[in-house]
């Protein structure tokens, strides 16, 4: 590491804070109907995206899901274009056509996010195959939820990746929920041993709030990918504070208990390092204000845009 560890930690905390505060701003703005798009917030899960993306170079590429604000930001996507996209404005990264569920920023290796569960997992494998073909020292991460591991395409992707030894890191972002349904109600298999059965190396991070650990483990795994060691599999356990989709809390809905959140709240880096966070708030707020101002000033897409980029 070039920077001293405390500088590094600060950087990671700042990014976590930025994502948290942006999504809180989304919550704040939501009742104004300026953001007319279903939002799947990452609040509580931000350290996963931050740690993973820290280990990636801008050339490394990432595929992810509809729960994608955190990844877009952590991978280096620009904030004003993010906000304008959420607003459905022409200044958005996709001119308003994508909205919250389909964020992308190819210039920094954020290759898109799909609202159909598990559908980008095979893209990570194919992109890794292409990286290998082209002889690039490029690594690919494909992120998916625990629910996605139930889909057939996940299994097909693991098999292909191992068969062809492609440089892809499968990351299961395990919040133990698919919408409101617990793992136990959905899965008869153990995700890690199942993955192992394909002959892939597996790693599990129990504390999805440990920014440094996520960054370190990912860096090691990506180094192995780049050295031709074949695909890797990583599960990071984490916790979603907010409802599955939308700006609200849903602890009164009955499918989980507020007490489940306690340990995560305690280890939440924004709480653990509250004093460091305090010093960063003003600057982060200013950054978000600028992004919101950009979105507010951005014009809605012109009617002609309806039929552009179709083919």
């Amino acid at each position: 590491m070039l920077t001293a560890p405390n500088e590094r930690l600060k950087r990671l905390i700042r990014q976590t804070l930025l994502i948290r505060r942006i999504e809180e701003r989304v919550i704040e703005l939501y009742p104004s109907d300026k953001i007319q798009s279903p939002v799947h917030l990452s609040i509580g899960q931000e350290p996963v995206a931050v740690g993973l993306c820290e280990a990636m170079t801008p050339q490394d590429i990432l595929f992810t899901t509809y729960r994608g604000h955190a990844y877009y930001i952590a991978k280096g996507g620009t904030l004003p274009e993010l906000m304008a996209e959420l607003y459905g404005r022409s200044g958005g990264v996709s001119g308003g056509k994508a909205g919250s569920m389909h964020l992308a920023a190819p210039e920094v290796g954020m290759m898109g996010s799909s609202a159909v569960v598990a559908s980008t997992i095979p893209h990570g494998v194919g992109a890794a195959l292409a990286a290998k073909l082209r002889g690039e020292k490029q690594a690919v991460i494909t992120v998916f939820g625990d629910g996605a591991t139930e889909e057939g395409v996940y299994h097909e992707s693991l098999n292909f990746a191992v068969l062809h030894k492609v440089p892809v890191l499968f990351v299961c972002e395990n919040n133990a929920l698919a919408v409101h349904t617990s793992l136990a109600e959905r899965q008869a298999f153990d995700t890690e041993s199942h993955a192992k059965a394909y002959g892939i190396n597996t790693t599990v991070i129990e504390d999805g709030n440990d920014l440094i650990k996520i960054g370190d483990v990912t860096a090691k795994l990506l180094a192995s990918l780049r050295a031709g060691g074949g695909p890797e599999w990583l599960m990071i356990k984490t916790y979603r504070y907010k409802e599955h989709v939308g700006p609200g809390d849903d602890f009164d809905a009955g499918y989980r208990k507020r007490a489940d959140m306690e340990p995560w709240w305690k280890s939440d880096p924004l709480n653990r390092y509250a004093d460091i966070v305090k010093g960063m708030e003003a600057e982060v707020k200013a950054e978000i204000d600028r992004a919101v101002a950009f979105a507010e000033a951005s014009a809605p897409p012109a009617p002609e845009q309806l039929l552009t980029d179709v083919e």
């Binding site: 958005g92 308003g96 809605p300 897409p301 009617p303 845009q305 309806l306 039929l307």
Partner: peptide, 16 residues
């Protein structure tokens, strides 16, 4: 529907 996938932006969805 217009001959395109559905856009997210309200301004476009309104005419879609």
């Amino acid at each position: 529907m217009a001959a395109a996938p559905c856009p997210t932006a309200k301004a476009l969805e309104d005419i879609y």
